[in-house]
Write a protein that binds this DNA or RNA. Structure first.
Lengths: 158, 158
DNA sequence: TGGATTCAGGACCATTTTAGTACTAATAAG
DNA sequence: CTTATTAGTACTAAAATGGTCCTGAATCCA
């Protein structure tokens, strides 16, 4: 099934920590120690998040990273886009017209719509939700593609 | 953003063709010529689909491949699972407990639920839909994660 | 001013994954 | 028996991924 990269996963872990009450500013070293992720890797991820504008950094002694805006204005889609770039589900999601198969291909359009739908759903999932998962902040999660069925999953499985 | 592999894309193209009216049985050679995908690759994909039970094959002269069951009982999730295996969005979606970060990690559970939701949504997207995308067979596509927002996208964008 | 701290920007490498190929064996038809 | 066609598997090449390292730039503080 679909996968997010480890680096994206790290990014969400780190951002969720920065989003905790009064976390304020943290250095890469602190975040690495807390998360048990290697320092160089933590640095790399944070640098990418900085470029994407999700965190702000201050250099020098007493520097560090903090969220660039409030946790409920940062979405999972923002994080994905920041770390993995806007990679589509299929080649033709990003570069339409470059696929030789397109003449025969009836499935491309559908994949593009699936891609869009997932993206939009993730845009509705906020860092606040990620950070407070166990507090039951995500009471339901619905993904529906096509008119037939709706699946609901309540917080505790099922 | 999330990505499906090229092989999975090929699989949907090929299956969609097999699902067309009266397509019946086709050889790997025919499918390769029609789709413009290389023969060895087509063969590889079809073999995987056969192992997964999505197509049936007959060997020997006059052999070939055809759908194992009707196109509306084959879902996009079936195809993904067949070609890519049940890879989760994150490591801990598949092997819970093997991640050193889990103690601190508040985000894992959420990703697992996103993973599940996407999977279930794809289970509702049938080969019939993929094959007939332009006939408007997918009037709406809704993915919702979290209680806040619902996004609808009608067939012709937006 | 100079040293210490901390981030920025790359280059770089190792490993894994993905895509694609090739070869041999098995099965079926005629 | 010959031809057509899939099954299985091993293999290779290319790309993506994860992770490291080094050098430079900003900032603080003594």
């Amino acid at each position: 099934m679909l996968r997010i990269s480890k680096l994206t996963d790290y990014a969400t872990v780190l951002l969720a920590h920065l989003a905790e009450d009064g976390a304020g500013q943290r250095t890469a070293v602190e975040l690495a120690e807390w998360s048990k992720i290697g320092l160089p890797t933590v640095s790399k991820v944070l640098k990418e998040l900085q470029r994407a504008g999700l965190v702000v950094s201050t250099r020098g002694a007493r520097g560090g990273y903090s969220l660039a805006r409030s946790a409920d204005t940062i979405s999972a889609a923002d994080i994905l886009d920041a770390v993995e770039g806007p990679i589509g589900l299929t080649e033709c999601s990003i570069h339409p017209g470059q696929c030789e198969l397109e003449s025969n291909c009836r499935v491309g359009r559908t994949w593009q719509r699936v891609n869009l739908a997932i993206h939009q759903a993730l845009a509705d999932l906020r860092l606040t939700d990620l950070a407070n998962a166990e507090a039951g902040a995500i009471p339901e999660l619905i993904i529906r593609i096509g008119p037939r069925l709706t699946i609901r999953s309540r917080t505790e499985s099922a």
